Simulated assay, not measured.
Amino acid sequence: MSYSKELKVAQLAVQRASILTKKVFHEKAKGTLSKDDKSPVTIGDFGAQALIIAAIKKNFPDDQVVGEEEASSLRDDVKLRDQIWGLVDGTRLSDAEAEKVLGGPIESVEAMLDAIDAGNSAGGAKGRIWALDPIDGTKGFLRGGQYAVCLALMVDGDVKVGVLGCPNLPIDDAAPLDATSGVDQTDAEGKGVLFSAVYGQGATSRPLSVAGLAKGQSIHMKEVKDITQATFCESVEAGHSSHGDQHAIATKLNISKPSVRMDSQAKYGSIARGAGDIYLRLPVSATYQEKIWDHASGDLIVREAGGEVTDSLGKRLDFSIGRTLSANKGVVAAPKAVHSTVLEVVKEVLSKK
């Protein structure tokens, strides 16, 4: 299958949701709640999830969605619910044809809540299931760093379409990452990228737009001729990824540049277009399980850009089990030519723990 319709719907839906998140990004009060796992959720998370799931259900009514958020707290909090409705109802693409593809505006508050709650799929190895993170990197979103709107289609457990909206990344694919790339960011002119990939068809980037899709271009992992000069990315939060192990790995690889700490799957998009080289996300505990919505889009985009993505044992990421990557431990993403070298050092460091 070409998945051309799925790709277009996903791109436009992520683009429209990114417009909503940009509105919230500039607000001092973002309507933050704490979930059971103590992670934050904002009005932007709820609004973006509603817009994206509504577009999916309009175009593919039988498809399931694994979404990060659910609407029970909004049903009990009228003020917050109405605040989110104001955002959702007021967010449009300025291109009428693009809006027609998405199905136009959500009809009511109750329809918005139902759309959010439609992200309740358990996932699995059968059928068409979308993995959605409406704002990946919510802490980065709150502190003014990087974040991403993430959507991927899995068919019988394999990722076939992946899209990332990264409002605070530079449009220029050649702009290199540095130690400041994850902090004090804006979505000013020259910022905002839409990454996408279809299995077997390569990966692209294009500027985020407020209308239809802007012109895209192919992206590719950068050739790493000297691994000691590689740029490696890691999460900002020490609770998400083991900074100590990753520093030890970089030291053994004789990488002298400081790591680039960024929130969200913006790291996947950045290495896919050659702005960075290596992404490490190593487990902080034996029991921690990654969520599929945190990796599905980025995994496909990096692989379609010529990279390799595995866990810390060299196994492909398995999105077919449920809502988590329960069969995997950690993530190692790098250009194919050097992935085995990086993985060997990862195994060496982790084996000593």
Rank of each mutant, 00 (worst) to 15 (best):
Q217K: 09
Y147V: 07
D76S: 14
I321V: 11
H240N: 15
V302S: 13
V284T: 14
Q265S: 12
R128L: 05
L164K: 08
K225D: 09
K139H: 03
L87E: 15
K191W: 00
P335C: 13
V155A: 07
K160W: 03
T21V: 10
L164S: 00
K353P: 02
D184P: 08
E234C: 03
V88S: 11
S242C: 06
K23M: 10
L177Q: 03
G162K: 00
R81I: 11
Q15M: 09
S340I: 01
R273F: 04
V66R: 00
V193H: 01
A327N: 09
G157H: 01
L280F: 05
G124D: 00
T310F: 04
S326E: 10
A333H: 08
S94G: 15
S108I: 06
S4G: 08
L313N: 13
A179K: 15
V88H: 09
D77E: 10
E97Q: 11
S121A: 12
S241F: 06
K22A: 11
I278S: 03
V41E: 14
S209G: 08
G200L: 07
R273N: 01
A334H: 00
R81L: 08
L280V: 06
L317R: 11
T21G: 00
V302A: 08
K8S: 07
T287Y: 04
I52R: 07
G244A: 13
D318K: 06
L20R: 12
E68Y: 11
A266H: 09
V155R: 06
K291Q: 14
V101S: 02
Y147E: 10
S270Y: 03
A54R: 15
L80T: 14
T42E: 09
I135Y: 07
T324P: 02
G190E: 12
T21C: 12
I116Y: 14
L142H: 09
S326W: 00
S34G: 14
P258L: 03
V338P: 01
D245F: 04
D114K: 12
M221Y: 03
A238C: 12
K352N: 03
D37S: 12
E97R: 14
G192M: 00
A211I: 08
P335R: 13
K347L: 04
K215T: 15
D299N: 14
G140K: 01
D117M: 10
I56D: 08
A334I: 04
W130C: 05
I53Y: 12
S326R: 11
Q64I: 03
R75E: 10
A71L: 13
V65E: 08
H295I: 03
S205T: 11
R303G: 02
D294P: 01
K315T: 12
K38N: 15
N120F: 05
K35W: 10
E6G: 02
G90F: 13
E344A: 07
L208F: 03
V163D: 08
T180S: 14
V183A: 15
I43P: 07
Y3I: 05
F141W: 06
R281I: 06
A131D: 10
S196N: 02
R128T: 06
T341L: 10
L350T: 01
Q49T: 13
T42L: 10
V345W: 00
V224N: 01
A286G: 12
V260N: 05
A248G: 05
K291M: 05
P105W: 04
N254L: 01
K315P: 07
K160T: 13
R323H: 05
N168D: 13
